[in-house]
């Protein structure tokens, strides 16, 4: 089926089988490999992208259902000047990254959180990422990175 959608502010046309997942379309057709395939069950969040600003598990989301939507992947988080977003920079500065395989998914979920709630407390940040598994960090430095962004924005 022919699908038109916007990915990282660029219009794209795809011709996909009805069962194809958004993750497969992004990774294999559009070569956006930032979103990761880790479980294909919608359990780990490594494939998270934003669909009209809302985080979705792209590994179980059919491309066919994303017609006319706005998709943002981790590759679309940088500003137009190429600079890292404040959240990306905070991940770098606060050691929120170890192996990095869950990082794109965490960044997408947390970008959506900050867009909806610019001043989340620690419990709200933790709750936001219960659908994003990270095996390396034990989550604390991830949460601290978000807190740093909030502090900076309030300055």
């Amino acid at each position: 089926m022919r699908i038109e959608l916007t990915v990282n502010e660029r219009k794209v046309m795809l011709d996909v089988p009805p069962s194809e997942t958004l993750l497969t379309s992004l990774r294999e057709r559009l070569h956006l490999t930032g979103a990761k395939e880790a479980c294909v069950e919608g359990e780990c969040g490594a494939c998270t992208v934003l669909l009209n600003g809302r985080p979705v598990d792209s590994c179980i989301y059919p491309t066919a259902a994303s017609s006319e939507t706005q998709i943002t992947t981790v590759e679309g988080l940088r500003g137009t000047d190429g600079k890292l977003s404040p959240l990306q920079q905070a991940f770098v500065d606060h050691f929120a990254v170890q192996c990095g395989f869950c990082t794109p998914g965490l960044l997408m979920t947390l970008s959506a959180l900050l867009a909806n709630n610019p001043d989340p407390n620690r419990a709200e940040i933790q709750q936001a990422i219960v659908g994003n598994l990270c095996r390396c960090t034990g989550y604390v430095q991830v949460v601290e990175a978000v807190e740093a962004v909030v502090r900076e924005a309030q300055r």
Partner: peptide, 22 residues
């Protein structure tokens, strides 16, 4: 010193290539 990781930027922009991305 807590110098930042050499791979932190590419891992936050999605450009770091993992085995499964090759």
């Amino acid at each position: 010193q807590s110098s930042v990781r050499s791979d932190a930027v590419t891992k936050t922009t999605g450009s770091a290539m993992f085995g499964t991305d090759i």
